[in-house]
Nucleic acid binder design. Structure first.
Lengths: 228, 228
DNA sequence: CGGTCCTTTGACACGCCTCAATTCATGTGG
DNA sequence: CCACATGAATTGAGGCGTGTCAAAGGACCG
């Protein structure tokens, strides 16, 4: 599932790729390797396949004509990207780090397209989870303050890719401040200020700009929803 | 499709309920009638069925513990609501006007659930369209100004339910200012001011608070994306 | 006619954006 | 190993758009 749901733990997610893609699903196409900052596909491209991310992190985004960008989601291993209803990709997708993806099936183009029922069922479950997850992101963009958004974002990553370690839960931030800003509907300066504030408050450590250690997880979780 | 995509015309939508639900889809459950302001279901309720809206308008929303609300979408006739991946509804759903809904199928609860393949295929197409559509709404909430959001909202409704008439395209706004505000991530005062501005600029007419006539459609469409 | 609720309008405050400068991390060539 | 360049991140100062609070207007209904 995409990282769009800051309040839902990975453990609570009923399915992820391991469960979604049974071993007997035919995977004829070879995996693709995309270097950091290279595109996987662009908005408007013909949508031939759906990808599963095997390794690395991707960024799905849309851009307005005047250059404003909205990052839709960050895709991590296990996530499925490129689902479309009309044979066109509806967003850009670029690699943030070196990425390995696996084309898993011809895309779902029309109601008349014939697809393996079992696969279809699984994709539907995944799409439903995705929709539910995106609804959480609406709440973030529409109703949360800058601090809450940043806290929510960190909580999501913490549960998704965090490693319990010495005095906290650690994880990387492979994406740039600009990516985070465009994901949360803020500016890079606001992201930076919010992170600094969390650091000064002792909630997190920032050994460097792309590594986070959450010291006080419950505090962070509270900050994700309380406007105080 | 939900009204979450301000820049996509209804004509461009590749499928809606008429196409989605073939006549031979078994519909055993009777239609339900919900009066205005009555709930259809609530977040957390057991998700037994997916509904198709036959008549009226519904509001799907989520609420934070401190009362902040985000309206996810407004559902119009032909839309499908209540899709879930885990047997629980993930948002509240209430009738804005008198509503008739048709339970169309037991919900998609798990990958092991057995479902008619053809139905599943159609639901997947619908879900994919829904995801693509929600991505547009992200752009609105994350990157558009108040005026752009209101203009985008009106453009969407214009294409969805507008009627070409005397010197413009007319349609109703059955939802309250509060509903619109919570949909666009703004306040009722900002909604009111934006609509007043559009009226004073001669872009729209507001015969009353719940009826709109778009006079200059191309101007409105430009305002939906240009920050000027 | 009076009550209630919704909408509109106004005045002001504040959070985030904008613009600018500084610091930091990384890589390159001498 | 150290200057230097380059791009990203941080920090600061100030402005603006939207939120907040308050009051007035309108629609609806008993």
């Amino acid at each position: 599932m995409f990282v769009t749901n800051p309040n839902q733990f990975r453990e609570a997610t009923p399915l992820h790729a391991a469960a979604l893609l049974a071993k007997n699903d035919p995977v004829d196409a070879p995996t693709r390797i995309i270097q950091a900052n290279e595109p996987l596909f662009c908005e408007g491209d013909e949508s031939l396949v759906v990808y599963e991310i095997v390794e690395g992190v991707v960024r799905s985004s849309k851009i307005l004509c005047d250059g404003r960008r909205q990052v839709i989601s960050f895709g991590y291993p296990g996530d499925i990207i490129g689902i479309s209803h009309d044979c066109r990709y509806h967003n850009d997708c670029e690699a943030i780090s070196k990425v390995i993806v696996r084309p898993i099936r011809k895309n779902v183009c029309s109601p008349t397209a014939t697809t393996d029922p079992q696969f279809c069922q699984r994709m539907l479950s995944y799409a439903a989870a995705e929709i539910n997850s995106m609804q959480e992101h609406f709440m973030m963009l529409g109703r949360k303050s800058a601090r809450e958004r940043v806290a929510s974002f960190l909580v999501t990553l913490m549960h998704r890719v965090g490693n319990r370690g010495d005095g906290g839960i650690a994880f990387d931030l492979p994406m740039s401040r600009s990516d985070i800003a465009d994901f949360l509907g803020l500016t890079i300066e606001t992201i930076s200020r919010s992170l600094t504030q969390l650091r000064k408050d002792g909630v997190i450590d920032l050994p460097n700009a792309h590594h986070v250690i959450v010291r006080r997880t419950s505090t962070l979780r509270e900050l994700a929803e309380s406007d105080v």
